[in-house]
């Protein structure tokens, strides 16, 4: 509609999540009409990131270095290891500021129907880490979906057989949640994992 170059830009922007044709057009026109310097910066940042960002050798999260900032930080508790499904989960936990140990990012979860087994999510690397490093506690923070639970169980069994203490994050009523509106499954989980005061 605008010529091949602009159309290509609009089409390319649509690869982003929740960006439809209309939003893509708005973004493209904004960059071209009002903010050329931001457009150049965005182009450069994208090229650089796409060229240089890879996986951390130790925890498999996204990083441009060999080892990510968290793994390279000697101030982190080297004896705690937290297992997660995605880098987004890692950012969420880091933002909460409650955890000072190390991570391992699976980049997915076990899902046999989709053909995703232990090999596809790097469980062999995780086991090697448990053998090589002296980890006191492995914290399983996979999602509370059926696949996340199966992944936690699989990793937990393997780690226990290596003599590593394993824990699972708690699940139940969300903070500020009113019981009346919480679904039955979550409530029954909350009751099953209640703790004595």
């Amino acid at each position: 509609m605008y010529g091949p170059v602009i159309d290509e830009l609009i089409e390319a922007l649509r690869c982003l999540p929740s960006v439809g044709p209309k939003s893509a057009q708005r973004m493209a026109l904004h960059l071209l009409e009002r903010d050329r310097s931001a457009a150049d910066r965005l182009a450069l940042a994208l090229t650089e990131a796409s060229k240089r960002v890879g996986r951390c050798r130790q925890c498999r999260t996204l990083t441009e270095q060999d080892k990510c900032v968290i793994c390279a930080n000697p101030g982190r508790d080297q004896r705690l290891l937290c297992v997660l499904e995605t880098p987004a989960d890692l950012f969420a936990i880091e933002q909460s500021g409650t955890y000072r140990g190390l991570y391992f990012v699976l980049m997915g979860h076990l899902s046999p129907i989709d053909g995703i087994g232990p090999e596809e999510i790097g469980i062999n690397y995780l086991m090697q880490r448990l053998i090589d490093e002296s980890i006191d506690e492995l914290i399983l923070a996979t999602n509370l979906t059926v696949e996340g639970e199966a992944t936690a169980y699989f990793v937990g069994e393997k780690a226990t057989s290596l003599g590593v203490a394993v824990s699972r994050i708690a699940h139940g009523v969300p903070l500020g949640g009113e019981l009346e509106y919480v679904d039955g499954g979550t409530l029954s989980h909350a009751f099953n994992s209640r703790k004595r005061l």
Partner: peptide, 19 residues
């Protein structure tokens, strides 16, 4: 093959040769 059956068998093997 059934992937779930493979998963079950892998869960039974020792961690050293988990894969």
């Amino acid at each position: 093959p059934l992937h779930s059956r493979e998963l079950y068998q892998q869960s039974r093997s020792s961690p050293g040769n988990a894969q």
